[in-house]
Design a protein around this nucleic acid. Structure first.
Lengths: 242, 242
DNA sequence: GGCAGTTTTCGACTGTCAGGCGAAAACTGA
DNA sequence: TCAGTTTTCGCCTGACAGTCGAAAACTGCC
């Protein structure tokens, strides 16, 4: 199309990174947004992020930008989402955006700057640029990965009861999840295990719940859900050890 | 396409698009590569792609670049894979690359330019830059999506027998897939249906196979495989109509 | 202390679906 | 007609999700 256009010195296309940071806050899925004080989209809400540094990797850049909004040490998970390159996604100039999905456990409550706040991911305020669509992509990714990976660890505190975990899944998935089934499924898959200690009995009585933890806090995919799975690779008992 | 050294000044970071184009060719999964004639990585093989135009969307750019290698009308599927931004993934200058996954049905045999050829995706030749990793990501994505979507349509010709389809899945997944089970699963999910016509009986005898087709040739996800699925949404019979 | 209320835990039952096996069907070539 | 080949169909099994109900374990009130 334009063989030499790539050498044009000016009007280069910029590149920015954005982050969809999600956390379950009081029984709902929330996303971290900041309010734009200047045009374009003055007063609208935007995802945290900013321009990619000249010698900076994408992942490190997200972490750096995010550090201006929250304590990044709270981040339990970070993965690349998608890159948007619509020529006019930003009015005036060409900016590509690579979006990341970040998760924060429900027990964390990082302090925020004045222009930044949590918003329910289901009912977004007026959003700048194409950020509403990016949030939707992030929610989608989270929903899917909760089903076939152990990503729940990224939403949950180090220890939890099944009721609490069920509440987290409910908030993230958008529908009720039976604590009974959730426990059976996650234990069978080896994702969670009881800690042994029982939780403090509830505020209004009731049998004290057992506490659980995720066995590993790094992403692992449940390959047992490949629909046409490979023939069982002989050994059966090493699955327990792995 | 190849890094143009005249543009070397490290003013801004450039952006290119790449495509992992996969096709099942004689019982194996193959990827489209071209051979670099100039340094860096002279003689090594690279993914098709090139610099993003200044006013060009990402998807259109991949299609444009790909048109120089194959007949893009053969492309049955195209989706974004990931963006690589390692500061030194390309020696000398900063180039971000957004990779796409493209699929071509097994019955197509597009003509190729002289520097371009199909290679077995399992045993790659010496690859330029980080392209080997990108091919691996593409194979991974294909394997996963074959399990929980109807993406098989993108590998298969308009009509096929179950033996042929089983061979395609075997090539893409890397392990044997029983034609019996595959038929039952895909029919139950409503992905494929018999065309009615029977295939020409085999070259060496045998019962003539029934021919099948995919009901739709657009991507649809098999939501029934969400592990913790939402409560059944009442109506049961409209699933048949959908 | 006993009893009602509450919450969690456990076991049993059902229905769906994938995987495997073998018999029957349908064709070719000798 | 018969052996060989390939596909198709039906049956069985085993895994697993979803539901329900009973039992367990606690609080608070009488």
């Amino acid at each position: 199309m334009q063989p030499n256009m790539r050498c044009m010195p000016r009007d280069h296309t910029g590149h920015e990174v954005l982050a969809v940071v999600l956390q379950v806050r009081d029984a709902g899925l929330s996303v971290l947004l900041w309010r734009r004080a200047r045009p374009p989209y003055e007063g609208a809400w935007a995802l945290p992020g900013g321009a990619l540094g000249d010698t900076e990797g994408l992942g490190p850049s997200v972490r750096r930008q995010l550090a201006q909004k929250v304590d990044v040490r709270e981040l339990s998970h970070l993965e690349q989402l998608e890159t948007r390159g619509d020529p006019d996604r930003v009015p005036g100039r060409r900016v590509l955006a690579t979006a990341y999905l970040g998760l924060i456990p429900a027990d964390a409550d990082p302090g925020l700057p004045g222009d930044t706040a949590w918003h329910p991911a289901g009912r977004l305020p007026e959003m700048a640029f194409d950020h509403a669509g990016i949030v939707a992509a992030g929610r989608h990714r989270l929903r899917n990965k909760l089903s076939y990976t152990n990503l729940g660890y990224a939403l949950a505190p180090p220890e939890f009861t099944m009721s609490e975990l069920s509440g987290l899944y409910r908030a993230a998935l958008g529908y009720d999840v039976s604590a009974t089934n959730l426990q059976r499924v996650l234990v069978r898959r080896g994702q969670i295990e009881p800690t042994g200690a029982a939780a403090a009995p509830g505020r209004s009585g009731g049998r004290p719940a057992a506490r659980f933890r995720f066995r590993t806090r790094r992403l692992e995919v449940t390959d047992a859900f490949a629909v046409l799975r490979p023939p069982a690779p002989a050994g059966l008992e090493e699955r327990e050890k792995a």
